[in-house]
């Protein structure tokens, strides 16, 4: 596995969630240290799945910790939003369509089409069969398209 290449992708994945460069990079490095600190399968897909699992757990942990801090300190929350919401408005209609998806659906689309994660890895991450992943991806894309057409975009 090309670690340097995966570094960029994990960074993009975390940036997609937090939209904070520094936070995303901190967590990327944390994920890599954990990944390298434990030995795992020789198989590349299994390794990749493990790396994404670590990154995803870090995300969740971060969300959880932040919620606690917020409720205790009553400080202004560090806005944690996912990438689609805050990115520059390029295609308003596409953005709206993506926004209508569930977070899991958005993540799946991101992993497959933006980060080029192989389908077997996605199927491992979501505990779905490969076939189910293919079908799900198709149906999500279809949903996006329908949503955009309803918005008057051809």
């Amino acid at each position: 596995m090309d670690l340097e290449d995966q570094y960029d992708r994990i960074f993009r994945y975390l940036y997609f969630y937090f939209h904070d460069r520094h936070l995303a990079e901190d967590l990327t490095q944390e994920a890599f240290l954990r990944f390298l600190g434990s030995r795992t399968y020789r198989d590349e897909n299994r390794q990749l799945q493990y790396l994404y699992t670590i990154a995803r757990n870090l995300c969740r942990q971060y969300y959880r910790d932040k919620t606690i801090t917020y409720s205790l300190d009553e400080e202004k929350d560090i806005t944690v939003t996912d990438g689609f919401e805050n990115s520059l408005i390029q295609t308003l209609s596409l953005q709206k369509a993506l926004q209508s998806l569930s977070p899991e659906e958005r993540e799946m689309i991101f992993l497959r089409y933006v980060n080029d994660v192989p389908v077997p890895v996605i199927s491992g991450l979501y505990q779905l069969s490969r076939f189910a992943v293919y079908r799900k991806l198709k149906s999500i894309l279809q949903k996006v398209r329908v949503e955009m057409e309803a918005d008057g975009y051809e």
């Binding site: 020789r42 799945q49 493990y50 699992t53």
Partner: peptide
């Protein structure tokens, strides 16, 4: 162990 099954070579 860290997601590795016990019956694997790894």
């Amino acid at each position: 162990c860290d997601g590795m099954d016990v019956e694997t070579e790894e």
